[in-house]
Computed example of a mutant assay.
Amino acid sequence: MTERPGRSDLRAAVADVAGIGAGMFLLGTSLGLLVVGSGLAWWWAPVLGGVVFAGSMEFLLVALAVAGTPLAAIAVTTLLVNGRHVFYGLSFPLHRIPGRLGRAYAVFALIDEAYALATTRPDVALSGRRILWSQVLLQVCWVSGSTLGALAGDTFSLRVPALDFVFTALFVVLATEAVVAGREATGPLLAVACALVARVVAPGEMLLVAMGLFVAALLVRYRLTPREPAGA
């Protein structure tokens, strides 16, 4: 019996997300622990995961909220941290997503991991439903992990340090897969160089400076890369 297309897309998405989803679940638990450890109610963890769903920004948002940071400052910080998603949109295969509602969700759920999965898979096998299922599963892993962490922290007063390193390890894996798939290591090397420069010139604002330098370096590389003639 031939498998239904929707079901095969779901099975493919489960296989795509399996490894990354486990990392996101574990990292989500650290967000939940951070939420209750910062004095917020446990239910803020699933709310952040369901409404914000921005990974590193959620960790930063908890700290900003607890510190009583003005909304204008939070908005500017969010723009600087998540501004990279504008560049993601240039190469994300949004045209494959069926329906306005599906495309709206795909834009909302365009996190780093979803972008990596969608841009390192062969175009022939990458359907719009497979992309959407991958994004849904990633959010489920994130929200369930953060909810579990918040409930555990609230119930047992758990405080587990150093779980935030999972975020770094996850991005190392994603960068490695991207290099292997594209057989091109210029991007990661540029990122490392920008991080080192930012560490030296602006250690207090390393993240923002490094991201700014990296964006500038990518733009310069784009301008200097030879283009193939149309129709070649």
Rank of each mutant, 00 (worst) to 15 (best):
T120Q: 09
A116E: 03
A114I: 05
P122W: 13
A125W: 13
P98N: 12
G102T: 06
L94P: 11
F108L: 09
L117P: 06
R100G: 15
G128C: 06
R129E: 13
G128W: 11
A109M: 05
L110I: 07
R103E: 09
P93A: 07
R96V: 05
A116F: 08
G128L: 04
R103G: 09
R100W: 10
Y115Q: 08
R96N: 08
E113F: 05
G99Q: 02
L117C: 09
A118Y: 01
D112K: 01
S127T: 15
A106T: 05
S127Q: 12
S127R: 14
A114H: 01
A104C: 06
L94V: 13
Y115E: 09
P98F: 00
G128E: 10
R103H: 01
G128M: 07
I97V: 15
R129D: 14
R100E: 13
R96H: 04
G128K: 06
D112Q: 02
L110V: 00
R121K: 15
E113S: 01
G99I: 03
D112E: 00
A109F: 06
R121N: 11
V124N: 14
A109E: 08
H95C: 12
A109K: 04
V107F: 09
R103F: 03
T119N: 09
L126H: 07
P98M: 08
P98K: 12
A106G: 09
L126M: 15
R129Q: 14
Y105F: 11
Y115S: 04
P93D: 04
A106E: 04
H95Q: 15
V107L: 10
D112Y: 00
A114V: 07
A125G: 12
V124S: 15
T119Y: 01
A114F: 01
R96M: 06
G102E: 06
H95F: 14
D112S: 04
A116Q: 07
I97W: 03
A109Y: 07
F108G: 03
F108E: 07
E113W: 04
Y105I: 02
R129H: 14
H95D: 15
F108I: 00
D112P: 01
A106D: 09
V107R: 09
E113M: 03
L101P: 03
R96E: 09
A106I: 01
I111P: 11
Y115K: 02
V124D: 15
R100V: 08
A116T: 11
A114W: 03
V124M: 13
P122T: 10
F108H: 06
P93F: 02
G102C: 05
E113L: 00
R96Y: 01
L101G: 08
A106W: 10
A118T: 06
